[in-house]
């Protein structure tokens, strides 16, 4: 009896695991398979569920600018812009992570450990502002950046992303600082460190795992961001990869082969980071929630 029930439970579990695995992986598979499928095999129904022969020409177009003849669309042109867009995205996301960590990391320490006037109201204000939807601030930001001459530029986008990441960083880091024993800091101060010195020499080195997790979250968020990038940048010089990914199309139809190739390349960095640094990232996500 018990054996039978246990056996049934194992089968149920197996079905659950298999379903989850397929549900998770099939869309990834389809994105990659499409990017590698010959163009002709993408335009008949029912479509081949796996590519019969692999075609790397789309990746070649994006990385080496090789020609690819498709009627009605300047693939090489968009591909070159996209390649530049990947560089833009990398520059913007990494700069945002560094500046965000610096500003948010320092402010987070003050909110975690120091008592000062307006501490709670300031924190509350910051969190409320963090919750604003991008579409709500993008209209005024459009005018502001335009006045500052920062529209259509990478610095403009970096500034906006920093504003968005700073609160996130200071929130996550302040919960992380609180997990570091106060005695260590006090010991450093007994040994003659100033408070700021103790922050630099004792707290920050100990907070490295928290900084890594937070930095990764900020990088992934900035890399993936779309709304601001779409509206605040309308110049190939500063366009980011996610925006360019939507431009592999003519007026009438989307070139799904190229779009899936671009999607694969845009998805690769964040997905790879999430896979490698999963422990850090999950800890960051859940740490932020516990105090919420």
């Amino acid at each position: 009896m018990v054996g039978a029930r246990r056996g049934r439970a194992r089968i149920g579990l197996f079905i659950g695991v298999a379903t989850i695995l397929l549900w998770t992986l099939l869309p990834f598979y389809w994105m990659l398979a499409t990017s590698l499928a010959p163009q002709r095999s993408l335009i008949h129904f029912p479509i081949n569920l796996y590519p019969h022969n692999l075609d790397l020409s789309r990746f070649r177009v994006i990385f080496f600018g090789a020609g690819l003849d498709l009627p009605g669309i300047d693939v090489a042109g968009v591909a070159a812009e996209f390649r530049h867009g990947l560089v833009n995205s990398l520059l913007i996301a990494s700069t945002t992570s560094v500046i965000g960590l610096l500003l948010g990391g320092l402010a987070g320490y003050a909110f975690a450990r120091l008592r000062f006037r307006l501490r709670r109201p300031m924190l509350l204000l910051a969190i409320c502002i963090q919750m604003l939807p991008p579409i709500a601030t993008v209209i005024p930001l459009y005018f502001m950046l335009s006045h500052l001459g920062l529209l259509n530029s990478r610095p403009g986008l970096i500034v906006v992303y920093c504003a968005n990441s700073v609160v996130y960083v200071l929130w996550l880091m302040s919960t992380y600082y609180r997990s570091i024993p106060l005695e260590l800091e006090e010991a450093a101060r007994v040994d003659g460190c100033t408070r700021f010195g103790a922050l630099l020499r004792v707290v920050l080195p100990l907070a490295r795992p928290g900084l890594v997790a937070t930095g990764l979250l900020v990088f992934i968020t900035a890399w993936n961001e779309f709304t601001y990038a779409l509206i605040l940048v309308n110049d190939p010089v500063a366009k980011t990869a996610p925006v360019l990914l939507t431009e592999f199309s003519t007026q009438f139809q989307i070139d799904y082969g190229m779009t899936m190739t671009a999607a694969t390349l845009v998805a690769l960095p964040p997905v790879l980071l999430a896979f490698i640094f999963q422990r850090y990232i999950v800890r960051g996500l859940t740490a932020g929630a516990v105090k919420g």
Binding site: I220, N224, L245, A262, A267, P270, V271, A274, V282
Partner: peptide, 10 residues
Amino acid sequence: FLPWAMPTVA
């Protein structure tokens, strides 16, 4: 966990 990291547009 991986789909979470996908860019929304992709």
